[in-house]
Design a protein around this nucleic acid. Structure first.
Lengths: 214, 214
DNA sequence: TAGGATTTGTGCGTATGTATT
DNA sequence: TAATACATACGCACAAATCCT
């Protein structure tokens, strides 16, 4: 049996994933009692998790109504992306890591997975790989505050990104993603964390432009 | 009677202030029952507030021990300051506000208050004015995500700053603060939000250098 | 308009964990 | 080592708010 904190994080992480992978699309009503039963606990610890999700803006609890997955308006999303671009670049200059074989191995792993995704592209698999690659990007800086803020902002808009991507040309988006990973791999094997961060920023910027057009 | 959300924020805000003004210095044990009685509620809604403070790193609840105000190690604090400097500068470039008479009036108000502080400097009054001026700085950008992240990071280190300031030359620090406000006032009356942001960044940077020396 | 069904918010007793004597 | 005191974590019952018939 895990301790309470670990278990709480497990439930939090699971719900966050479901929201961001659109298992719970915006507007979904989450039932405290149902979720408590599913995770084998009571309402109290589950409410602790929902409270955190509410503080982070992923759900909103309304007395007498329910706990509802939020939507994000376009202006707010653009603000978040503006900031995320800056933070992505900062990962290359604020306490960047020393690149080791482990780092190189990790990015090669993503390269392989992205090629596999190109052969069989689905929106969900794309979202999952994109999320995993984002977490890899976080590890490029040792600045914990930067990592925490970046993660929080990422999860705030991830579901909106996925919703938009689903309406766009999936194969084309996966192709762009593959090239981003290739470019990142080049930067990483050359030991250039700063370049990897700039590549990330550039791709976020281009992604926003495509989102605005659609 | 306020609604539940407003009341919750009021309690949250009050406790956050007490922690950051060192009414509750690091290591203090907060009693759920005592605080619940003080705010005229039961333990349950108070625990909701403590949960948020814990998620933000200001306190840590340990089963069987208590809820303890955290300390911050020096390395973590330097990481936060590195990031805060960047965010302060970004306030001038990400959705900067149009400066109005109201903005100018606000900064003049701070100028007056800082002069008053110089005549009768206390660590606590300094901390309070510094906090209020920080909130003014937040209003220079319309990017809500930037404001939220900046605020969160500020409160994460504010109590450590105050603890250090108390051991330094208070009059000298107040003097520097007054000059920062004067410079900011010049930038603002000239309608130059970007300059105001750069001034802020510069002063955070210099503050960190002084903190490291002490 | 009224009332019942459903949902989140609150209060409190109990379980569980920790520290001290 | 054991027992006592005391803190948070949990589960449940009920209050309050909303929605729908």
């Amino acid at each position: 049996m895990q301790d309470a904190t670990s278990n709480r994080f497990r439930v939090y992480s699971e719900l966050r994933s479901r929201i961001c992978l659109l298992d719970y699309p915006p507007g979904t009503r989450l039932s405290e009692e149902t979720l408590a039963a599913e995770f084998g606990t009571s309402r109290t610890p589950l409410r602790r998790v929902l409270a955190r999700l509410e503080d982070e803006g992923l759900v909103q609890s309304i007395h007498g109504v329910g706990t509802i997955v939020t939507d994000v308006d376009i202006e707010e999303m653009l603000h978040v992306y503006d900031l995320r671009m800056e933070l992505a670049q900062l990962a290359g200059s604020l306490s960047p890591i020393d690149i080791t074989d482990q780092t190189i191995q990790a990015v090669r792993h993503f390269h392989n997975q992205s090629e596999a995704l190109k052969r069989d592209p689905t929106a969900r698999a794309f979202a999952q790989l994109n999320m995993a690659f984002f977490h890899f990007g976080l590890t490029l800086s040792n600045n914990v505050a930067l990592r925490d803020m970046s993660e929080r902002l990422y999860y705030k808009t991830a579901r909106i990104w996925l919703k938009s991507i689903s309406k766009m040309d999936l194969a084309a988006e996966v192709d762009i993603f593959c090239r981003e990973i290739e470019e990142t791999q080049n930067a990483i094997v050359n030991g250039d964390t700063s370049a990897a961060a700039l590549i990330r920023r550039a791709h976020i910027s281009m992604c926003v432009h495509r989102l605005r057009k659609s």
